[in-house]
Structures are given as structure tokens and as C-alpha cells.
């Protein structure tokens, strides 16, 4: 079940495009809770990228950390601050 990296570089480009979109959206959205959720989506695309790079352990860690802990603590902080950013 060798997975040749040669065949799937278009797929990788697609993931990269989605990552760039998510990164720009996370930095430019006004609402901080939306920004946190988009950061979670960014983390999911990172996980896909690492699965394509054969780093399954890293992808597993990123899936667990990015979906569960990271997003939750950013949202938890957003309840104490003004949830609307100026820029």
C-alpha cells in the first residue's frame, strides 16, 4: 500500500489553497469566536496536509489537539473579553 507522492500533488495544492484561505480569514474576521472556529478549520487542513506527508502520528496529534483543546480554550478566553475586534 505504498502511497506515491507523485500522483497527488494537485491534492496537496488544493489543501494548501484552503489553508491559506483559512489563515487569511482567521486573521481578518471581526468576531473573535468566528476567528477561533476558523482556526479550528485551519488546524483540520493542517492535519490533512500531514497525512499526505506520511506523518500519521503528527496528524493524529494535530487532530486531537486542534479540534478539541485549542479551539475550546480560545473560545473560553473569548467569553472574558470584548468579542469584537477593531481590525
Amino acid at each position: 500500500m505504498t502511497w506515491d507522492a507523485n500522483l497527488l500533488w494537485q491534492f496537496d495544492m488544493l489543501i494548501l489553497l484552503m489553508m491559506v484561505i483559512c489563515a487569511v480569514a482567521a486573521l481578518s474576521l471581526k468576531g473573535l469566536v468566528s476567528s477561533a472556529v476558523v482556526t479550528g478549520a485551519y488546524s483540520f487542513f493542517t492535519c490533512l496536509m500531514w497525512t499526505h506527508m506520511m506523518a500519521v502520528d503528527v496528524a493524529f496529534t494535530e487532530a486531537a489537539v486542534g479540534a478539541a483543546v485549542s479551539t475550546v480554550i480560545i473560545v473560553a478566553t473569548a467569553q472574558y473579553i470584548n468579542p469584537w475586534s477593531k481590525d
Partner: peptide, 24 residues
């Protein structure tokens, strides 16, 4: 960015970029 939370999210993205370079 002016908002400190946006700076932290920028830090997360920065970090992920370095990790992708390392794995690649």
C-alpha cells in the same frame, strides 16, 4: 494586527508553518 487575540492566532499560524517545513 491591533487586537492581541489576533496576534495570538497569528502566532499559531506562524508556528504551524514552521512545523510544516520541518515535516516536509
Amino acid at each position: 494586527k491591533n487586537n492581541l487575540m489576533k496576534k495570538i492566532i497569528g502566532m499559531v499560524i506562524f508556528q504551524t508553518a514552521i512545523l510544516i517545513f520541518f515535516v516536509s
